[in-house]
Design a binder for these strands. Structure first.
Lengths: 323, 323
DNA sequence: GTTGCATTCTAAACCGTTTTAGTAAGATCA
DNA sequence: TGATCTTACTAAAACGGTTTAGAATGCAAC
């Protein structure tokens, strides 16, 4: 009681408390966390599941999750799902068995039953980057829709008309569908017809090869795109390589923008205009929400646990003159 | 006993074993890992301490550590030290208190007492990327010396003579000292005098500003370097930006090579020649060594736990004609 | 008929905490 | 003076596993 600061609450004499502290120091006493966890049913550990921790986006998120968690006395166990539903299921299972107090999940959205199950069992969790549309559960995501509208309109304002889209499969992720919706709405809003023929979907597991197969078709007749909206950083890197090998100049032949900003874009010639995501904020807020859920399960208001964080458009030179 | 596969060893009747399994399945029994950990004194959890998990190098290493650990049934708790000795100390402390079975540490090498203490207490750990020279403890690192010799000689073979070095502080890290040693030896070996005036040290906490201050001096008279050996990816990015703003052309005005390869280098113009580190191997091997130590403490041979992994030179266009 | 020995199962101890229940001593009160 | 209440501490139960010691049974040997 004394060592946990509950001495006064439990009516332990001041003198005794001092003696306890002294003896603890003398013996270099370190509480055994496993025993504590066993007894309390709480491990002060969070589980973090992302697609791939070696991807710059998730790596940065991990970092901010770590910082935020450690600030509140929590540790982080992590795992990569590789965008595979069964890996995700296994990870959820294992991390729960392992006794984490809550989960932060960038779900593949391919086995929502597992997530729904968590909710039904009232197990604390927060979705990050992606959410289940219409489902009543906490999530933190960038405002993918608004960010996409903004960047596509930026292209249009710079006189780019035939704007193609490079998207990724699995394409049902809300992070992706929202970007697609933004792209389409931006076109419509500006009187440009949406043309499905200018859209290509590339498989997460086979990016380089798919890109080499698909992109030439888009930039050559009859499609002749003049602009390219790429939905994430993985894809953008592959696209730049192919564009390069095709001898296409940016932005003269084809303008390029990307959703999600990485270091790389500052350095290539020309620098790539991109939508920067509030990665640190996403990590931090999901931790805050999760720990609040864990520590005050009843009082928690779901409504305060659904967040769309604003993105920022980083204008560089890949769209021309930047009016 | 049955559920842990020790039924036969303990003479449990086959029939009984089957009944146990059936009942376990029926009740959907899931062992409580905390109880198990408490009793066994083993948590099947490893701690991973790196400078910054959001850095591409460490992010990739984390990924391979995760994969290797999970393959052997272990989980990974991680923390970033930000190259700060006190943060590292706290992390070691916390992760040990937390009951990890072993640690993988990319140490700051600033408080070796903590590491020596681990050794003295016979607590399983492996150093990764950096090691304590002369100390008898397991580590896994890239062959920083050989890789540096190779890349600097590559520069020399391409006719670059006045080769400067951009290094980082803290500069006592073996990953850095070995690269420096490689740089100097390569010069000597090729009859080029080593000139301390062509070396600049940049602070980890202030890379951009330091670089802007330091690099111009190096490329202008009287130093007039014709080549630049940059010791890591952080520094290289900053250097490229400054070189760019100075209007220096690569490799015509100054050739550039970097130790540690990142995606970026493939994409900039011209692509940067770099030494690629065996990141995946480093992660994997450190896990293997660590778990071997944990699971068979006595049989473990230290000699088999010190590894220098070969690097590969990725020749691109930042040194000219690449003879 | 007792002893010795497998074979197989049961009971209890243990890991190190937190929490609950119990107790001893002194103070309060009728 | 005995009942009741505080105050401050002590003892024991609980968490859920693993491991050790103990016990019941059947069979062979002397």
């Amino acid at each position: 009681m004394v060592l946990n600061g509950k001495g006064n609450d439990n009516g332990i004499n001041e003198d005794t408390q001092k003696r306890v502290w002294a003896k603890a120091k003398e013996l270099n006493y370190k509480p055994n966390m496993m025993a504590r966890s066993l007894r309390m049913g709480r491990s002060h550990t969070l589980g973090l599941i992302v697609a791939d921790i070696s991807n710059a986006f998730y790596a940065r998120m991990c970092r901010s999750v770590e910082d935020a968690a450690s600030k509140r006395g929590y540790y982080v166990l992590f795992g990569s799902s590789d965008e595979k539903a069964d890996k995700e299921r296994t990870l959820i299972q294992m991390l729960r068995d392992r006794g984490v107090d809550g989960l932060i999940i960038s779900t593949t959205l391919a086995n929502n039953e597992d997530i729904e199950e968590l909710k039904k069992e009232n197990f604390p969790f927060v979705l990050v980057d992606r959410f289940i549309p219409g489902a009543e559960m906490p999530f933190v995501t960038a405002d993918n829709y608004a960010g996409s509208v903004e960047v596509v309109e930026h292209m249009i304002k710079n006189g780019v008309d035939r704007i193609g889209q490079l998207t990724i499969s699995p394409s049902h992720l809300t992070s992706i569908t929202e970007r697609t919706r933004g792209y389409q709405d931006a076109l419509k809003k500006n009187g440009i017809g949406f043309d499905q023929a200018l859209v290509r979907e590339i498989s997460y597991d086979n990016i380089a090869a798919d890109m080499a197969r698909v992109l030439p078709d888009l930039v050559h007749p009859p499609h002749n795109i003049r602009g390219l909206f790429v939905v994430n950083n993985n894809l953008a890197m592959a696209a730049l390589e192919v564009l390069n090998s095709l001898g296409k100049r940016i932005p003269e032949d084809v303008a390029v923008v990307c959703f999600d900003d990485v270091d790389l874009f500052r350095f290539v010639t020309p620098p790539i205009t991109a939508v920067s995501q509030p990665v640190a904020g996403m990590g931090r807020e999901s931790v805050e929400i999760l720990i609040d859920m864990i520590e005050q399960k009843d009082k928690f208001q779901l409504s305060s646990g659904q967040r769309f964080l604003p993105t920022t458009l980083i204008v560089r030179e890949s769209c021309g003159n930047n009016v």
